[in-house]
């Protein structure tokens, strides 16, 4: 297709996902610009992770399209090329799961080596080099023979990150990479993503709750609300838009301070909790 060169690397068009009668994604149209970091924010339970899984083809979608370089992707793509382009897509994409999804019967080293050994034809020496490089970058070289269950949550996260980056992907999908991390680690993860992104030039989609960090480190923001993209734009545009839903997100730290102050003054709890 001629639009391949100009098309965004990854995009969705009117994406619909239902679980039974529950509509999670009603109509999501989103573009992931090439070489940029896109943060998807939104309240818990609005389907951010589901959107990411549909993007990665882990979950089949019920309507609309996922486009990779302008071509439909996924198991339910209309033409037979769907499966084939999904395979091509997966060679160029990594996914960082919220729960890390490390293989618990393999050591740290084996986990990182796994995608190279199983899905590429790299020679053994090259694999060894790349794995030790990836472990070194994430300061895990002394833990190569430990199993994921013997590691702390932060180490597991770093290990999953090492596994995601070892294939030198063009797209990395991050599903809440900072969930359960302390603030320092959280900053470190965002710094790491931004740093690795500069180094390798991959395109990243980050699903996150951490608005300040996302604003500081991402090129684009998309706000998912009630199954639709409520806002999409740069951090500067995010700061300026008058949209009330965006505003409520943007101002939530200030709102918290306000509520606490009010609570101390003896007022009732705000009604719109959650």
């Amino acid at each position: 297709m001629s639009e391949t060169a100009t098309a965004p690397l990854l995009a969705t068009r009117s994406l619909v996902k239902r679980f039974g009668s529950q509509v999670v994604l009603a109509d999501v149209t989103l573009e992931v610009p090439r070489g940029r970091v896109l943060a998807i924010i939104g309240k818990s339970g609005t389907g951010k992770s589901v959107l990411l899984k549909c993007l990665a083809g882990v979950l089949p979608h019920d309507g609309g399209e996922v486009l990779f370089e302008g071509r439909p992707l996924g198991a339910n793509a209309p033409e037979a090329s769907g499966a084939e382009s999904l395979a091509a897509f997966r060679r160029r994409c990594s996914y960082l799961f919220q729960g890390n999804a490390l293989l618990d019967s393999l050591t740290a080293w084996e986990n990182v080596a796994l995608p190279l050994e199983q899905a590429t034809l790299l020679p053994k020496a090259e694999i060894r080099l790349r794995v030790s490089e990836a472990l070194h970058r994430l300061e895990l070289e002394t833990d190569a023979t430990r199993y994921p269950s013997q590691m702390s949550g932060g180490m597991q996260k770093r290990l999953a990150l090492a596994r995601a980056l070892v294939t030198r992907p063009e797209i990395v999908l991050f599903d809440e990479p900072t969930a359960g991390l302390d603030p320092l680690r959280r900053n470190a993860v965002f710094a790491l993503i931004a740093h690795a992104q500069r180094e390798f030039g991959f395109t990243a989609v980050v699903v996150t709750h951490d608005l300040p960090e996302a604003l500081a480190s991402c090129d684009h923001l998309a706000l998912l609300d009630q199954g639709r993209i409520r806002f999409s734009g740069t951090p500067a545009e995010f700061a300026a838009t008058p949209d009330p839903v965006v505003a409520s997100f943007r101002d939530s730290p200030a709102a918290l301070a306000r509520d606490i102050a009010a609570l101390r003054a003896g007022a009732a709890l705000p009604a719109d909790l959650g």
Binding site: T107, W109, E110, R128, S132, E141, A144, T145
Partner: peptide
């Protein structure tokens, strides 16, 4: 650094 081959 590398996994020990002993286990295998």
């Amino acid at each position: 650094m590398q996994p020990s081959p002993v286990k295998y």
